[in-house]
Simulated assay, not measured.
Amino acid sequence: MLRNLIFRTMEMLMVACLAAMVTMVFTNAALRKLSDYGLTLFGGGITVSEELSRILFVWLTFVGAVVVAGQWGHLGVETLVGKLRGRARIAAMFTSDILVLVCCAVLFIGTWRQAPIHADNIAPVTGMPMIWVYGAGFITSIGIGLIVVGRVFRVLTGRITDQELRQFAGEVDDPNGLPKGHVE
């Protein structure tokens, strides 16, 4: 229940980022085109729209990475893992998850070390501290890390389900366990 609420909120954040990006870029392009014909509004464009759309794109990408991780959507070596059975598949999942945790730790530590620098750097147009851009690494590393820690815990305690193993191997597209190519 809480997991679904968190992922739903992240998906809504992604929609809001995308809608704001499209609106800003389209409006800016329209204003610039109108200024070519002699109708100059807002000085021919909105200066903050380019910078804000780049910042929103970073957040869209990093939050999207967490959402996709929760849906088993990231790239994997499904051809190899699909040939494994039983404990070999569990070992592959465990190894993969440990490597992902290492990457999450590297991302978090790197973001942590860079945070004081970016807290003092100011974006040239909006005047926002750049930690608002680079801080997205915290959300991604913690979000994906928590997802993977939960899966590692289920593997270590023997609670990993057959459906999760099938999803890991790419045999199931749907989080509800429907086989690949299943159409209702």
Results as ranks from 00 to 15, higher is better:
residue 125 V to N: 05
residue 129 P to C: 07
residue 102 V to L: 15
residue 154 R to I: 05
residue 156 L to G: 05
residue 164 E to H: 00
residue 120 D to G: 14
residue 45 G to Q: 03
residue 105 A to T: 11
residue 65 A to M: 14
residue 171 E to F: 08
residue 68 V to A: 15
residue 95 T to G: 13
residue 48 V to G: 06
residue 155 V to P: 03
residue 165 L to C: 08
residue 105 A to L: 15
residue 137 G to P: 07
residue 61 T to G: 14
residue 152 V to C: 11
residue 115 A to P: 00
residue 90 I to D: 10
residue 54 R to H: 02
residue 72 W to Q: 10
residue 48 V to C: 01
residue 60 L to S: 08
residue 79 T to M: 10
residue 114 Q to W: 14
residue 175 P to F: 11
residue 109 I to Q: 12
residue 159 R to N: 13
residue 69 A to N: 00
residue 65 A to W: 08
residue 67 V to K: 01
residue 37 Y to Q: 03
residue 56 L to W: 10
residue 144 I to H: 06
residue 49 S to H: 04
residue 135 G to M: 05
residue 150 G to R: 07
residue 148 V to Y: 10
residue 147 I to N: 06
residue 76 G to T: 08
residue 97 D to L: 12
residue 97 D to V: 04
residue 152 V to M: 07
residue 142 I to G: 04
residue 171 E to R: 07
residue 122 I to G: 01
residue 72 W to G: 07
residue 114 Q to H: 14
residue 114 Q to I: 13
residue 127 G to F: 03
residue 85 R to M: 11
residue 173 D to G: 12
residue 100 V to S: 09
residue 154 R to W: 01
residue 78 E to M: 07
residue 141 S to A: 15
residue 88 A to K: 10
residue 78 E to R: 00
residue 115 A to G: 09
residue 60 L to H: 09
residue 59 W to A: 12
residue 70 G to L: 01
residue 63 V to Q: 07
residue 168 F to Y: 11
residue 38 G to L: 00
residue 71 Q to S: 13
residue 162 D to P: 04
residue 50 E to M: 10
residue 146 L to V: 10
residue 67 V to F: 11
residue 140 T to K: 00
residue 144 I to L: 09
residue 161 T to D: 02
residue 47 T to W: 06
residue 52 L to H: 07
residue 131 I to T: 04
residue 105 A to H: 00
residue 59 W to G: 12
